[in-house]
Simulated assay, not measured.
Amino acid sequence: MRIGVIRNPRSHANIGRTESASTPDAVLLVEPATREALVQDLKAFAQCGVELLVIDGGDGTIRDVISLLPDTFGDTPPLLALLPSGKTNVLAIDLGVPHGWTLHQAIAAARSGHPVIKTRAPLVVRWDDGRPSLHGFVFGLGAFVRVTSMSKKVNALGAFHSLSVALTLAGGVIGTLMGGARDRWRAGVPLCMAIDGEETRTADRFVVMATTLKRLPLGLKPFGPPREGLKFLDVDAPPKHLPGALPALLSGRDAAWLPGLGYRRGDAQTIRITTDQPLVVDGEVYDGAGGVTVVLAPALRFLAA
Rank of each mutant, 00 (worst) to 15 (best):
G290S: 06
T202C: 08
I107V: 13
V173Y: 06
G49I: 01
D183C: 08
E19F: 15
T148S: 15
L242P: 11
S22W: 07
D56E: 06
N89R: 06
T202P: 00
L42T: 00
D276T: 14
I117V: 15
Q105W: 02
G224W: 02
V285I: 15
L69F: 07
P32Y: 06
G252Y: 09
R63T: 08
T72M: 10
V97Q: 04
L230R: 01
V39I: 14
S67P: 01
I55W: 05
T34W: 08
G136L: 05
L233E: 00
A13R: 15
Y286W: 14
P298V: 14
D41S: 14
V285K: 02
K87S: 15
G229N: 04
V138P: 00
D56Q: 10
L213V: 09
G58N: 03
Q105H: 11
L191I: 12
V5M: 06
F160M: 07
R184L: 04
E199N: 13
R10S: 13
V27R: 10
V145E: 01
R186H: 07
L300W: 04
A203W: 02
A181H: 07
G283V: 02
D196P: 12
F45D: 00
L242F: 14
L233V: 01
S112V: 14
I107D: 03
P247L: 04
L52V: 05
I273W: 02
R131G: 02
C48W: 11
P217I: 04
A33L: 12
L163G: 13
A108I: 00
C48T: 12
H114N: 12
N8F: 11
I174T: 15
A37E: 14
D287A: 10
G197M: 06
R146Q: 07
A108S: 11
A166S: 13
D129F: 07
A166W: 08
T102P: 11
R264C: 08
A248H: 14
